[in-house]
């Protein structure tokens, strides 16, 4: 029974996440446009973009780009599938880091200056996000006694009650992970972001399309992590996810000129103060509940 549920969850994620992620991206672009007093593109614009990119000529700076971006896409999808299949949260986090390594390697492989700097900054963003993702897994373990997402989902008390700090720190890091801010790392389609498109600057056509789809998968995975804090009260969870995503868009438009240096400092400070303090307090007072 559990196995069937796990496979079902994974399959649903693999099919639905790109659709949902693409739609979210469309909504994101419309909302951003409205916040800037524009009309914005059609809702399905992200899908048009992908379809167009898929039909473009194959152009490479280095042939391994194709393989590496495929690895990126597949591994992100696998880590998402593991998450929604209810498997080990730490494994999800580590698989995600492996996936990003491939994206970075693909950008390195081009050996072009923009691509290289993009890769370095992408790497910084992975580094910045890593501690809170590990603390997230550990925090859930301390609250529920397990790393298994399926069992965390069944917890009686939502984890947010014990992990508010970790939640807020993760939310702060989400700005980075959703490719919204800082402007000199981000690669989404807003005019106020990195012009040469950082890490993706040497990718064209299908290669770029794969990176985009991987981003949709990752968006859903990250929102799933947010939802996990509210396991047990799905309605509140969904509301928080929606409000959270809206807030991320708002933050992106209010702070369009955040640099990577600022991001590293502020997000690690947030992780340190909110995340670590939360975990340490939980360790001293909570223990395994």
């Amino acid at each position: 029974m559990n196995v069937i549920m796990a496979i079902l969850g994974a399959v649903i994620f693999l099919i639905a996440a790109p659709l949902l992620g693409g739609l979210l991206s469309g909504i994101d672009r419309i909302l951003t446009a409205r916040m800037q007093s524009r009309r914005g593109p059609p809702l399905l614009q992200p899908f048009y973009d992908i379809s167009k990119l898929w039909h473009k000529e194959k152009v490479f700076a280095n042939p391994v780009e194709g393989i590496f971006t495929t690895a990126y896409l597949v591994l992100i999808a696998v880590s998402g599938a593991m998450f929604f299949g209810g498997l080990n949260l730490l494994l999800v986090v580590f698989c995600l880091a492996l996936a990003h390594t491939f994206l970075i390697l693909a950008a390195y492989a081009a050996n072009a200056p923009y691509s290289h700097i993009g890769a370095e900054r992408e790497l910084l963003s992975v580094m910045v996000a890593e501690p809170i993702l590990i603390l997230l897994g550990v925090g859930f373990f301390m609250v529920t006694g397990t790393f298994m997402v399926s069992e965390i989902m069944g917890a009686a008390v939502p984890a947010i009650c014990y992990l508010p700090g970790v939640f807020l720190a993760l939310f702060a890091v989400l700005t980075l992970k959703l490719r919204k801010s800082p402007f000199d790392i981000s690669t989404s389609h807003h005019a106020h972001q990195e012009l040469v498109k950082g890490v993706t600057s040497s990718f064209a056509g299908k290669t770029l399309a794969k990176v985009e789809i991987a981003h949709w998968y990752e968006t859903i995975l990250l929102l799933g992590m947010i939802f996990l804090f509210f396991a047990g009260c799905p309605i509140i969870g969904i509301i928080v996810v929606i409000v959270g995503y809206f807030l991320e868009i708002l933050i992106d438009n209010i702070f369009p000129r955040v640099t990577w240096q600022m991001t590293v400092k502020s997000l690690w400070l947030a992780t340190l103060i909110l995340g670590v303090l939360n975990i340490v307090l939980l360790g001293f007072f909570g223990g395994i509940l």
């Binding site: 390594t101 390697l105 492989a109 992975v126 910045v128 890593e130 501690p131």
Partner: peptide, 26 residues
Amino acid sequence: ISILAFGSALTVFFWTKWLGKLFMRM
């Protein structure tokens, strides 16, 4: 664990940038 979390993040940084160098185009 908190120390380990931050330490591993730093580890990821210095290994990946080395790895990337090896893959750079001819």
